[in-house]
Amino acid sequence: MADSDPPIIRLRGVTKVYGEGPTAFQALKGVDLDIAAGDFVAVMGPSGSGKSTTMNILGCLDVPTGGQFLFKGVHVERLDRDQRALLRRKYLGFVFQGFNLLARTSALENVELPLLYRGDPRKQRREAAMEALDKVGLKDWWDHTPGELSGGQQQRVAIARAIVTNPDVLLADEPTGNLDSERSIEIMEFLTELNKTSGITVLMVTHEPDMAAFAHTIVHFKDGLVERIEAGHKSGEAVA
């Protein structure tokens, strides 16, 4: 990707303070970060360094206390609750450490959910959800509920749910945190594949260097600031 492309995500002096008064805690102390469209980014750093806080802000789930967050050139920090919800609906997909699937709900219905909120007609929903399940290799498991699926399978359903809307950015906070290394590698390979073939920008928090190695770019956090940015080991072509 050329340097002239505007970044899909741009953070400028982003701060986040939790709480008020004497118990207030500054989790982010002025984060500057640009992420290019189509990049595969791993976010690393010690516990409490502000990785999840940043991801929540990038995911429009939370607002920064100060600074600017531009998503596709839009000042997200100026949007209200519902406008952010619509941004999430349209451009973002989430994968969580704890899978966060709806219990007692079939894989298909879970994957369908974002389309339902988008107001797609039934048939179209079904087809898109089946296609997404097929991509994560769980087509034959469509009618199983989370309770009937293994952790790895649940995470794949969660990924299917995240990508079913064809989002621009996929945000994953420790997606392999609850999985063994074999399942983790499967997930990583899938995310790599997705990034390569669909051009989805992938942002992933991880503690494991092995997983981070799948990324093109690795962002290191420390004490609420970006410490350094390096190129991933398996990134093939070097990143600036």
């Binding site: 789930l61 989430f94 749910r161």
Partner: peptide
């Protein structure tokens, strides 16, 4: 939380 995260608006 899940519904909100995947883009449901409050209403």
């Amino acid at each position: 939380g899940i519904r909100l995260a995947i883009g449901a608006v409050a209403s």
